[in-house]
Design a protein around this nucleic acid. Structure first.
Lengths: 247, 247
DNA sequence: CGGGTCCTTGACCCCCCTCAAGGTCTGTGG
DNA sequence: CCACAGACCTTGAGGGGGGTCAAGGACCCG
């Protein structure tokens, strides 16, 4: 701590020392983890398909890191990816879990603004940035679909701000489970949570222990059940929805 | 509280009862507060200007509310607007403060997703939605500029998630002051904070008291000074920047 | 000058974080 | 098949940052 910060330091030094919890991902998709399955097929109709390189990545593999020069754009075909930002002292905020159809690596600047790592084994499409932008320039309809997707992401981000700024721990976990259940399928009673409690905690602005306790409370109240293999069964969807914002 | 929630209730009933702090804005721009200053001028070159209706709104005036049917799109010309979402029990999360050039009311769905109210007296441009969309369809260059702005907003939203999820109270307030100072001007040592402590608190996920205490700490440490009329002077910009993420 | 709103400060408390221990599950090697 | 190591999850005990409650001060405006 810099000496000239002494005064302020004494006022706030008791800040919780959030330890850098998450171990860095083990591999890079460019080295061991990535397998190129298929090269572009020029006969396809979708102009994005035409420049896509399909890649299979192992679980817990880094795709790119915050600060990397913005090279490629990715689309998740299958599997789950986490996207996060770090503070200098290691505090981590997961800003999103990406699933089928989600895009990442889109940035207006020269650098990636967050780190992307696979949670599960993933199938991805990789688009070289220059060619991706060329396609978007040439295809207004595609560009519009992309804009719509980004706008939808912004809406989700604003909802998440409400969660992070104003919800209690149980409300956050309930919101999280409900959203996954909704995304999985219409009446999805069972959802898979492929990510660790640590990932969930860093997404919800909590600690692993608090997340675990919140799951226990939801279980005890008969709202959900925790099954084998990270499966969650939504027992009482209505109650889960209520718990989402007025526990 | 519903009876069938009793079990969960006992587990989480001690939730802080965030009171609905903010009084609703006093007027609607469509009624008393709004004054149409100029109608579209067909000779102008900017196709958006051509469909814009310039409006002056008093301070603390509601422009539209969450859930309203998505009528018009607005651009802030001058002044400051706050945009927020509410939970059913009144907890409020301000998702942004809008200034010159910022757009609002853009939504893909049929409803507004947040409430927009002026903080100060504002000059606004109002675009009827159908005509706005027509212009965007006809002018790819404009549409691209709009997309870029939305993408920039998404980046800001992700930064704000880090703040809400992982920063301490003093770090949040320091980040807030620094960002306003950066936006105001390059070496801006003095910034105006036109919004109340309550607005700031609901933006930073804190309470007014905690915001006030954080300001006091920054003042005591010699980082900032609080002047008349909501002015803040940044005394030590370097220290303010440090306090932003490792207090 | 009186009433209102906003800001600040203090005292107290609670939700969540920290620290620690024990349990469960999985993959690996003997 | 079992032993073992390691990672992950859960649970408990205790403490702290920030919320709650309350009071006083500053400021504005009629």
């Amino acid at each position: 701590m810099a000496a000239h910060l002494a005064t302020l330091d004494s006022a706030v030094s008791a800040r919780p020392a959030f330890v850098p919890t998450a171990a860095p991902a083990r591999r890079s998709v460019r080295s061991v983890g990535g397998t190129v399955v298929s090269f572009p097929d020029p006969r396809t109709s979708d102009p994005l398909e035409a420049i896509a390189e399909t890649v299979v990545a192992d679980r817990e593999t880094m795709l790119f890191a915050e600060g990397d020069s913005a090279g490629d754009v990715y689309r998740v075909v299958d599997g789950m990816v986490r996207v996060y930002k770090l503070l200098p002292d290691g505090r981590r905020q997961v800003v999103g879990f990406l699933q089928g159809g989600d895009m990442m690596g889109l940035t207006l600047g020269p650098c990636q603004l967050y780190t992307a790592e696979t949670v599960t084994a993933c199938t991805l499409q990789r688009f070289p940035r220059a060619r991706f932008e060329a396609v978007m320039d040439a295809q207004p309809a595609l560009a519009r679909r992309l804009s719509a997707r980004i706008a939808t992401e912004l809406v989700a981000a604003q909802d998440h701000m409400v969660l992070l700024g104003r919800k209690t721990a149980v409300e956050r976990v309930a919101s999280f489970v409900l959203r996954l259940a909704e995304r999985a399928q219409a009446d999805g009673r069972r959802v898979r949570l492929p990510m660790s409690r640590c990932d969930i905690a860093d997404y919800l602005g909590l600690t692993t222990e608090t997340v675990s306790r919140a799951f226990t409370k939801l279980k005890t109240s008969g709202t959900i059940r925790l099954l084998e293999g990270g499966m969650v069964e939504v027992v009482d969807r209505g109650r889960l929805a209520e718990t989402t914002e007025s526990a």
